[in-house]
Write a protein that binds this DNA or RNA. Structure first.
Lengths: 138, 138
DNA sequence: GCATCATATTCCCAATTGAGAATATGTCAA
DNA sequence: TTGACATATTCTCAATTGGGAATATGATGC
């Protein structure tokens, strides 16, 4: 019921592209906020705010060095993300073989009349052809 | 700079816990919307809407079976999530060893210029102790 | 102290989000 | 056709979000 806040939930924290870019910039080693700002084009307050979210999610660690702050990746929370996605590995392995078998089936019969509107009683494809719009699946 | 919409971006789509639960429910095989509703406690319109988002992200496939609809996981987009998170594997592998080596380096007379913020000569941990609240890092 | 650099915080705003209720669409069965 | 069932869509609402500008805090050097 409670909405997952980006300030706490790793998946939410990682959902923002700017934050992923920040993490990527930090992947090679510690960076100051100024260095991060240089690598990704984003105003300083935004970067600081994103860093705050990443900090709240435990994804970065801070250390003071003089008047600057060194940020470093703290990758451990990402393990959950990886493990979760990895759970579905079989589903993306299976995907191609499914497409393949479907293609073979379709090729064996000449033309397909209509697809998702009516499933053929004998063999109903699990994965229908997917409408694509702007490079994304609809 | 455009905000990533959940209806298109995989990371966003996966950021919602309810949607992750739906995917988990589908992980074992095709399910009807009603079956999904039964496995996760959430009102039907919410489930349908979440399924719409998952569909828009290419994470599920639909197939009609009579008056019901069978949803199935389409895991391929999750590969990007996994690969991205996997990029940081070294950061959770090397986490402890990094603290260790840095502690050793610093202990060996930390020449590292001025850590004017109370660099306790002897050990300056890269990762400060992390405040935890409700099992999450703050 | 004072000016300056580095970073964080606050405030405002438009857009997105997710829940919930009500309603609409579509399909089967009698 | 009528009615029950399965699912989707619409609408409203409150909360969250991210950007931008302005401002605040904090450390350094003179």
């Amino acid at each position: 019921m409670p909405r997952a806040r980006a300030a706490v939930d790793v998946f939410q924290a990682v959902a923002d592209p700017s934050r992923r870019r920040i993490l990527l910039a930090l992947a090679r080693g510690e960076r100051t906020v100024t260095q991060i700002i240089e690598s990704i084009t984003l105003p300083q307050p935004s970067v600081s705010k994103h860093l705050g979210v990443l900090r709240a999610a435990g994804l970065v660690a801070v250390r003071r060095r003089g008047r600057e702050r060194m940020y470093a990746v703290r990758g451990e929370p990402l393990r959950e993300v990886r493990d979760w996605a990895d759970t579905f590995k079989k589903h993306w392995d299976q995907h191609l073989s499914r497409i393949k078998s479907r293609a073979e089936r379709t090729a064996r019969r000449g033309k397909e009349s209509r697809d998702s509107s009516q499933a053929t009683p004998g063999k109903a494809p699990v994965i229908p052809p997917w409408p694509v719009w702007k490079g994304k699946y609809l």
